[in-house]
Amino acid sequence: MSGEICPLAALRAGQSGLVQPGCSEHPAVQRLLALGLLPGTQVMVVRVAPLGDPLEIEFGGLRLSLRKNDAAAMQVMRLG
């Protein structure tokens, strides 16, 4: 439901989230920060790969493949 805080990996295809502050040392999160996925930015899960993993996410005009384990390290607020 909208407004709940969950890991990025929990978003379904087509759903967006707002990145929450506070981050981990997780290397994937570090890279996403360098790419501009900052707290307060919106990120959308475009689709899930046919075999279930990885996710395709989009933010700030960039589209990336991201594995679910790595996506689990980032917390977002579900925007529906």
Partner: peptide, 9 residues
């Protein structure tokens, strides 16, 4: 160390 799989499309 393994790198995260983060591939730009």
């Amino acid at each position: 160390r393994p790198q995260p799989f983060l591939l730009e499309m």
